[in-house]
Amino acid sequence: MSIIIPGDQLPVDETTLNSKKLTVGPSIYVDPLLDNQMTISNAGIFTHKEKKTKQLITVESSSKNYIPAVGDLIVGTVLGGFGEFFKVSLSNYKPPAILSYMAFENATKKNRPNLKTGSLVYARISAYDPNIDVELECFNPTTGKAEGFGELTGGTVVEVDLGFARYLMFNENNPVLEHLSKKCQFEIAIGVNGKVWIKGGDLVTTLACCQYIEQAQRLASGELEQLLKKLWKQHNI
């Protein structure tokens, strides 16, 4: 694991970077004023992946502050409606995103989705520009099907660090959820905005799952089993 912070040099030398087509990921700032010089702008784990004709450099950094990007799957809270849109909050103290009434499965002018203030939705970010409102959608626009998006009923939301949320989402066989799935049944929706919605069979299981996810982000994978045992004992499940 190579960790770098701002002020460091890129761990890859220039000739390697120039040899193949390069894609630069987040946390590396390409300065247009300094002849596209690359500098490390955030602290995190550096990765360099190479394929036959292309290569990728990224810095994976964790924070508590979500900045939207197109295609991100998020868990949001409905704050209300105006005109033909719902206002959806992605994170606190940030301008809300908008979700059109039409961006649902089977929605028409007459058949409007019924979301109340405070309800949760699982959605995809369909448009993002820092200068205008973020736009969301709750269906796949090519097929018109919901495909798992839409309102989340029951369950509860845990807030985790963004790095941990991405880890849960993009590592299908991550030990955190694998251990949990051996213990109980649950439904989960992971938002890369650091909100994880989880629903167990009953209220106590949901609570235990919730505490498990929250505490798992501060533990090494070896300690997960012990945590599960402790929580399940604590809740008498």
Binding site: M1, I3, I5, A43, G44, I45, E60, S61, S62, D161, G163, F164, Y167, V176, A216, Q217, R218, L219, A220, S221
Partner: peptide, 13 residues
Amino acid sequence: SVESVKQKFVYLS
């Protein structure tokens, strides 16, 4: 700083 980043990514170990 490196130590604090390690702490943040403790779940990877």
